[in-house]
Computed example of a mutant assay.
Amino acid sequence: MLLLNPEQHLDLHFTPIDNAWLTFARSPVPLVLQDLDALQGRYPIVISPHGTPVPLLLPELLQPHQAAPWDNYTPNQLQAYPFHLIQQPVIADDGSTVEIRESLAIDEHCPHLQLRAGYRLFDDDGQLTSFTRSIIDRLHALAQAQSRTERFMRTLERVGVMVPARVYHQGECFDCRLIDPLRLDRAMEALDSEAEGLSATVLAHRLLDAQERLEADQVRWLTQIEGEKGLHEITIMTGENVDKSTQPVQ
């Protein structure tokens, strides 16, 4: 990651390209609620297997949909690529305290960077150009969208509607979590009592719609069997046109 500054990068230019096609080289792609609203369940999406639950699009499962990728839509995370905002501790002007400052960074291996073609990142006085300021505004908006989506996902996790799963496709294996529709039905009362329960419920149904597009070779719930160690696999989906309503062992 390259931290941008006018002393070293005054002549650096940025050439926009269609980032949607970078999906197939980047795995997985984190999504926010706006992405799910735009994609409307047309593409296969799962939930990250560990830590804070995040909706993920797995490019490896996109092969049946490559003929018309995204319908001219690019997920927010890819819209912001290759820029990132980094919080850095620095010595304040008084020389005695440390404060956190925001720095703009870029993936130095991205195909967008040029020396003389495209948009300038800094003007002749070393100030941010209007283009660079618009990038920073987009990154701030993305951070807010990610925070909002994570809150709703934590609500779904808290009421227990996610189950661990394993997706098998073309010789590869992907651990993830999925929404269990039966558990979701049982959790409606708990969701009603949550401050953001309605938004979390809408998100859960968006994820269920996306699960219907899991055109993988096989999907298995990972369940805990009483008295035994570890998780056990139970096949729930095989092939493209199968009954996807099978529930995990409760």
Rank of each mutant, 00 (worst) to 15 (best):
M1I: 11
L4W: 01
P6R: 13
P6K: 12
E7V: 10
Q8V: 06
Q8W: 08
D11S: 12
L12I: 07
L12S: 03
T15P: 07
I17H: 13
A25W: 14
R26M: 10
V29D: 02
L36C: 02
L39E: 00
Q40M: 09
G41E: 09
Y43L: 04
P44R: 06
P49M: 10
G51F: 11
G51N: 13
V54R: 15
V54W: 09
L57A: 07
L57F: 04
L57R: 12
L62K: 07
H65R: 13
H65P: 01
A67E: 15
A80P: 06
P82C: 08
P82R: 06
F83A: 05
H84F: 12
L85I: 00
I86V: 15
V90C: 02
I91H: 02
D93T: 01
V98R: 02
R101W: 00
S103L: 14
L104C: 05
A105D: 08
A105G: 11
C110H: 04
C110L: 07
R116H: 15
A117V: 15
G118Y: 09
R120Y: 03
L121M: 08
F122E: 02
D123M: 08
D124P: 02
Q127Y: 08
Q127V: 04
L128F: 12
L128D: 06
S130A: 15
S134R: 15
I135D: 02
R138N: 14
Q146G: 07
R148F: 06
T149G: 00
R151M: 10
T155S: 08
R158D: 05
G160K: 14
Y168M: 12
Q170G: 04
C176E: 08
R177H: 05
L178C: 05
I179D: 01
D180N: 09
P181T: 14
P181A: 11
M188I: 12
E189G: 06
L191F: 05
E196L: 12
L203E: 11
L214M: 06
D217I: 07
V219R: 00
L222Y: 04
L222K: 13
I225Y: 06
E226G: 04
E226C: 05
G227S: 07
E228I: 08
E228L: 13
E233L: 09
G239Y: 02
S245T: 12
